[in-house]
Amino acid sequence: MGLVLSFANFFQIDNLYSLNKIEPMPAYLVFEKPQALKKIANKKTVKKQIFEEPVIASPIPEAADTRAELENIKVEKDLLLKEIINNETKSSVEEISFFSNLIRDQVIMNWKQPSSAQKGMTVEILITLVPTGEIIQVNLTKSSGNQAFDNSALNAVQKVSKFESLDMGRKLFDNHFRKFTLVFNPEN
């Protein structure tokens, strides 16, 4: 019930329901204010504001019963949802890229390739982090077949032991950086 109301706000279909306030929900989608169909500069502040506002339940009138109206709503909703996904993913993609580069640089700085390293060799290591950037688990998920090469990658990871400057939102961390794979693949 409440979910439907929130969506309604999102899509600015205020005339369908009479609500006085924005209704924040503990559902992921609804964490921006209705006007945030454009990018929000500081998500953190927005979050804060939302949680401070109380949740209000209101009686819901009957939904539109003509088929045409239903179709219209569906099309509008699809388009608006697509736009939101684009905006949301775009900022996430940039952030993911930024932190991935930070991680990559820190690993590069600590990786001494062995003499036997050759193009085509690949070793994959699954890394588990805690939000401080500390590595709490290392799993060799794909060996290169060359022990010295595998060891050099494991050494590099061990040397890093804690990634610096990974201050990202909790959500981004949980979704992408709590567990990720490092693929060591020399290009020389």
């Binding site: 990559r104 950086f177 990720f180 020399p186």
Partner: peptide, 11 residues
């Protein structure tokens, strides 16, 4: 997503 970060060079 399952993030994969590629390391193509070392020191």
């Amino acid at each position: 997503s399952d993030l994969r970060i590629e390391i193509t060079k070392g020191i």
